[in-house]
Amino acid sequence: MAEERPAKWGLVVDLDRCTGCNACIAACSMENNVPFVGEDEVAYGRALYWIRTQRYWEGEYPAVTPTFQPVMCQQCGNAPCEPVCPVYASVHSEEEQINLAVYNRCVGTRYCANNCPYFARVFNWFDYELPEPMRSYLNPDVTVRRRGVMEKCTFCVQRIVRGRQKARAEGRELRDGEIQPACVQACPAEALVFGDLSDPESRVSQLARSQRRYHLLEELGTLPRVTYLKGVGNHGG
């Protein structure tokens, strides 16, 4: 059996490729059993997007242009959401070294969301019932959350676990690019790249060394595992 070395999972978002099409949101929601909340709740800011596209307008007409930035949990190495949880529901997983929400511990204080500088955490204000037979499409690999529970992007940890189990069963190491969270797999522009940052040869590591790289709110010292590559304009930038 091949010896396993711990992986350091990371994500690169190439903003020069990203078009802002939101396919990532749809892919994420269907993979992770994320409920839809309806028009009123979206308007109250209670939509349960684990990944969202921040769209800001820049410039004045006619030189006005939107900027798109997909934002999900940044999987901080130094996560502000963790020390504030009174019940240890926001923890680092031992094996993947990413930040996870333990749903059955969560008591809904929402301290973690208040302390997250990226607005990456969303709260189940209600139970969102799916009419029959819609529950048939729920993914059995992912917990269905209920009212009063905080949730957020997990880098599709169920896919990481499955990929690792598969490689282990076949007695080999994981291949670069073998594990893809749902958003990465769907992204039509191939703007998202996922992989092992501890392997300097992996595609994600190479891209994360790009001169265009930056982290969101880098000055907070949260050590995010998500790296953004700046969009390039033809006129400066």
């Binding site: 078009t19 802002g20 939101n22 749809a26 929601s29 839809f36 969202r52 596209t53 798109f68």
Partner: peptide
């Protein structure tokens, strides 16, 4: 979920 998806622009 298509209804809930934000219009891109």
């Amino acid at each position: 979920w298509l209804q809930e998806l934000p219009d891109a622009m």
